[in-house]
Nucleic acid binder design. Structure first.
Length: 772
DNA sequence: ATGCGCCAAGTTTTT
DNA sequence: CTTGGCGCAT
């Protein structure tokens, strides 16, 4: 105990006075206005430690974040400061899921409810539309879903929803929303928005429950408060009435979730909500160099709807911000990865020092390829989401139905999967019957021989499915790996894939093996669950990246600008800073949305500690088509005179289509080049064709020799179970196990010279198939 | 009833 | 370039 006192006292000494003021605040509301890099997470974690130090029970502290990444970060930092304390740290959605698990009956659910992801919700919506037999000529289900989501975030329940007169979409929503909500309830399921809305309404309608939870969570911390929507705001408010020990941190300049209902008013009017509030401003930046900060500040200063705030730092001046204009997106990826690889090989940096940012997930592809080619280890945060893949969703649907037999979406997904000869007509009849009798479709399936419209031959297949289900469900409270194993074998799903000659089915099998591994790890990590399955499913629906379960490793991080909030890296690359991507096409028109895009770039730039590299490509292949790009207007807002601006003219990437490019088509080719010229402050370039990136010839590869050095890389996908392989050090071996895909594809190899098992991440290993 | 193959469409960000 | 929906052929 004494040790802890000493070390904690020491920790406090390292804080500045402003930081300490926030850390030492105990009771009463607290607003921390924290600029980027002002040590906010440090303040928050120290404050939690300080509360614990003052005898607050860990279970009375609740820390809420927006992303899993941010929660992980906070958890691991707190762990270092105050080890082994059961403080609840997690996302809003996760917190609500837990709460709802306990108080499901308050909102008409049972505790084993299912969380529908966006795809499941969309299926449920379609089911609701079918039930209504509504003809929606004018609106797509997507538009309806969006409108419903908006209403939920505004805490408008299906009963309360009143369209504005003369709003045609609203009129349809008024019909669909209640039907959709009934469908969810009948399936004992919720969508993402429900998690928040149910909890908010539950707290509003049950004063006793509200006050007991208020008392239970006496100290609440909310990170990134500028991103709360009305539902989140209502939840936090409801839990801070009798014990208004609510501490929020935020920065209006980093508000980037307006599109999902975040309301800046929540932070701007915090002082009105809690007149007694103590306000602490953390304005000094401890993260970035002066140069980086000046650039970021120059950018954000262009936002008109903003309180002015000067960022300052005592850090070094640092190296100039770099802006590189590459000929193509592939050159961009190549350039970035070579820069990273060179720094690592020179021993100046390690992979985890780097982060590469992009606006949309689709942009990660090219980068990924380059990382693999250079064998630089990387991880993608929220990439092509693992849990969204078809085969994973299929298997998860089995698990969901085992856990919640009312889950109609899961039922419809798997009843004929693998194919059992149960067709559309039979299912339509079954669904009708279930609708009339107000029962789940699984229940209807049990009674299918009583359904007059279903032929006995069909009924037989359905009954077989029901007995398969009952067999699987009998193991519902076993460890997840065991359940999963039975699902895969008994359903026939595994064998169908295994015996398939469709090449990608083997990859699917590998993905499923990865899911089994995740299940095993889950079982090991949380051995004492009442229902391991339920906990696993919750995790699976609220975390879309399987890596979140793994410990962090020494790899380069690739992520969207949104995912980057709250993180920092010594070296940051922000890519594809082009009109249409950043700012995104859809947000270019609206002044407020445009400002949010600017904040997004601001967030990206301020992640950097020592080096900031910005880049764009003059030509980008998008949706299979090569297009000339236009530099982002944001680039013109940066202090280019103090930056290193470089335009690379020669492409390393040959592309036959270049030859077809009409070099005389001025309107298309001049535009990007002109923008580039402006960037270089070479205004005279406008009239000088030699400065234009206009001709195909200029862009053709002059660097073909550059590829000679690289040994040809082998795609991880060519490796198969049982394959004989060769390794430069270990020699010949045989693959005894293989799982995953892409960068994560991992093989276990048994070498002749080195018996036993050696594991490889294939993308990074020098392993090759042996010659036939 | 199933399954394949074609065509069209649609592309943001997170839980 | 992907995904999803639909229609046709088996």
């Amino acid at each position: 105990m004494r040790d802890m006192d000493d070390s904690f006292a020491h920790a406090l000494e390292t804080l500045t006075s402003a930081q300490r003021e926030a850390v030492e605040h105990i009771e009463g509301p607290l607003l921390i206005l924290a600029g980027p890099g002002s040590g906010k997470t440090r303040v928050v974690t120290h404050r939690v430690a300080n509360l614990l130090h003052h005898g607050v029970a860990p279970r009375e502290i609740l820390a809420l974040t927006f992303t899993n990444k941010a929660a992980d970060e906070m958890r691991s930092r707190l762990e270092r400061l105050a080890p082994q304390q059961p403080v609840w740290i997690g996302t809003f959605h996760r917190f609500c899921a837990r709460l709802l698990r306990r108080y499901a009956r308050y909102v008409g659910l049972s505790e084993n409810y299912t969380i529908y992801d966006t795809a499941d919700s969309s299926k449920a919506l379609r089911m609701a539309l079918e039930e209504l037999s509504l003809n929606l000529a004018h609106f797509t289900p997507d538009q309806l879903a969006q409108a419903i989501s908006w209403a939920k975030n505004e805490l408008i329940t299906s009963e309360q929803y009143q369209p504005r007169p003369g709003n045609p979409l609203g009129a349809v929503v008024a019909k669909v929303y209640p039907a959709y909500q009934r469908r969810l309830l009948a399936s004992n399921a919720v969508d993402f928005d429900d998690l928040l809305m149910h909890v908010a309404t539950m707290l509003r309608e049950n004063p006793e429950l509200r006050s007991s939870l208020d008392a239970q969570y006496r100290f609440i911390l909310v990170d990134e408060y500028q991103d709360t929507n009305l539902a989140q705001y209502a939840i936090v408010r409801a839990l801070s009435v009798d014990f208004p020990n609510l501490a929020v941190t935020g920065d209006p300049d980093q508000s980037i979730y307006g599109w999902r209902g975040a309301n800046l008013k929540n932070i701007l009017e915090f002082e009105k909500d809690f007149p007694e509030v103590k306000v602490v401003r953390l304005e000094q930046n401890y993260r970035s160099t002066k140069t980086i900060l000046r650039a970021a500040d120059a950018l954000i200063a262009h936002n008109k709807h903003r309180k002015k705030k000067a960022l300052f730092t005592d850090n070094d001046e640092g190296r100039p911000v770099r802006l590189t204009v590459y000929p193509t997106h592939r050159d961009e990826a190549e350039g970035i990865v070579s820069t990273i690889a060179a720094a690592i090989h020179a021993g100046r940096r390690r992979p985890s020092d780097f982060a590469v940012f992009y606006r949309t997930n689709a942009l990660s592809r090219t980068l990924e390829e380059a990382f693999r080619e250079h064998a630089v280890p990387y991880q993608i945060v929220n990439g092509v989401e693992f849990y969204q893949r078809k085969e994973i969703k299929d298997v998860i649907a089995y698990l969901q139905l085992i856990n919640n037999p009312q889950n109609d979406v899961a039922f419809m997904r798997i009843i004929n999967l693998p194919s059992r000869g149960i067709g559309k007509t039979t299912l339509a009849r079954l669904s009708d019957y279930a609708g009339q009798k107000r029962m789940s479709r699984l229940e209807a399936a049990r009674q299918c021989k009583d359904i007059s419209t279903i032929k006995p031959s069909e009924a037989k297949s359905v009954r077989e499915f029901v007995s398969l289900y009952d067999d699987l469900a009998s193991r519902a409270i076993r460890p997840v790996e065991e359940i999963l194993g039975h699902v895969l074998t008994k359903s026939g799903y595994h064998d169908v894939l295994k015996n398939s000659d469709v090449p990608e089915d083997q990859e699917r099998l590998a993905n499923i093996e990865e899911l089994v591994t995740a299940a095993r790890e889950f079982d090991e990590r949380f051995p004492e669950q009442d229902s391991p399955l339920e906990a696993f499913l919750e995790q699976a629906s609220l975390v879309n990246d399987i890596d979140a379960m793994e410990s962090s490793s020494d790899v380069v991080t690739l992520l969207t600008l949104h995912a980057g909030k709250g993180l920092e890296f010594p070296v940051v690359f922000v890519t594809a800073i082009e009109q249409g991507l950043l700012p995104h096409e859809l947000n270019r028109e609206d002044e407020f949305k445009l400002e949010e895009e600017r904040r997004l770039l601001f967030v990206g730039m301020t992640r950097a500690e020592e080096e900031l590299h910005l880049s764009m490509a003059s030509y980008r292949t998008f949706r299979g088509q090569r297009h000339p790009t236009i530099a982002s207007p944001f680039l013109m807002e940066l202090p280019r005179d103090e930056m290193d601006v470089e335009e690379i003219r020669s492409s390393r990437f040959a592309d036959p289509s270049w030859d077809d490019a009409p070099s005389h088509d001025d309107s298309y080719f001049d535009e990007p080049a002109m923008q580039v010229g402006e960037l270089n402050e070479e205004r005279e370039a406008r009239s000088s064709p030699t400065h234009l990136l206009s001709t195909a010839a200029e862009l053709l590869p002059d660097a073909s020799p550059s590829t000679t050095g690289d040994a040809e890389k082998i795609s991880p996908d060519v490796f198969r179970l049982g394959m004989t392989v060769i390794h430069p050090t270990y020699g010949l071996g045989k693959i005894t196990a293989i799982s995953g895909t892409g960068a994560k594809r991992t093989a276990t190899v048994n070498f002749c010279l080195n018996p036993g098992e050696t594991k490889f991440r294939l993308a990074y290993s020098p392993l090759r198939p042996a010659q036939k």
